[in-house]
């Protein structure tokens, strides 16, 4: 099997510090107000039985990415290693990909005026380095690598741990795997959000 990049985020280690979020901004010069990666956190329960759950989010580099399918000019493309990228020279900024991504992973970069999202720090990975968020993750909760390489940390974690993805019901087949994720964090409680549940 060829190389297939994926990310495993071990939430047993995550302290919700947002280092990944800032590293991404810094590395990729992401403007304020938009994010390629961010961290959600919720607290739930009733005192004193309480829990907090964190969920770093980023582009899932899906196997069957909605964004890629809907792009009318094929500006979004996928490398053989699974990385989903945007050709910033071709993108017309129709925002269809943004509307279609189930993960809010995309936005229009107000500087460049094209659709944009996490690239897995493609240039860094090509040069043998880790994505900036993974590199800086202070607890090592973020792990990036070749899902198909039995020697990779990602492979080992996928092989030995119980993982979950966000919105498996979509046909996207997302490639960000969470260890220890909470269901409420993985999927917003829409009914509550729309006021149907107090």
């Amino acid at each position: 099997m060829g190389k297939r990049y994926a990310m495993v985020i071990d939430l047993r280690k995550c302290v919700g510090c947002h280092a990944c979020q800032v590293a991404c901004k810094s590395e990729n010069n992401v403007p304020l107000g938009v994010n390629r990666s961010w961290v959600e956190e919720l607290e739930t329960g009733k005192f004193p039985n309480v829990s907090r759950h964190r969920l770093p989010r980023l582009c899932n580099h899906c196997e069957n990415p909605s964004c890629l399918n809907v792009c009318p000019v094929k500006a979004t493309y996928q490398l053989e290693d699974g990385t989903v990228l945007v050709d910033y020279d071709r993108c017309i900024g129709c925002k269809y990909c943004i509307a279609a991504c189930p993960y809010d992973a995309r936005f229009i970069n107000p500087e460049r005026n094209t659709a944009e999202k996490c690239t897995y720090c493609h240039e860094r990975v090509e040069a043998g380095m880790q994505p900036a968020c993974v590199n800086t993750c202070i607890t090592g909760a973020r792990v990036f690598g070749d899902r198909n390489d039995p020697n990779s940390e990602v492979f080992k974690l996928l092989a030995t741990q119980s993982v979950a993805v966000s919105k498996p019901e979509t046909n996207n087949r997302p490639q960000t795997y969470y260890i220890g994720a909470d269901e409420k964090a993985l999927r917003p409680n829409l009914l509550e959000i729309v006021g149907g549940e107090k």
């Binding site: 979020q21 590293a23 590199n135 202070i138």
Partner: peptide, 29 residues
């Protein structure tokens, strides 16, 4: 870093690696 580079590592080689830094640290810029 959990596994820091050996202290004798040439700084040219060290370019490929970076240690970890929290959000406050990175925002120092």
């Amino acid at each position: 870093a959990d596994q820091p580079l050996p202290y004798t590592t040439d700084p040219k080689e060290a370019r490929k690696y970076a240690g970890k830094l929290c959000p406050r640290g990175q925002a120092g810029l």
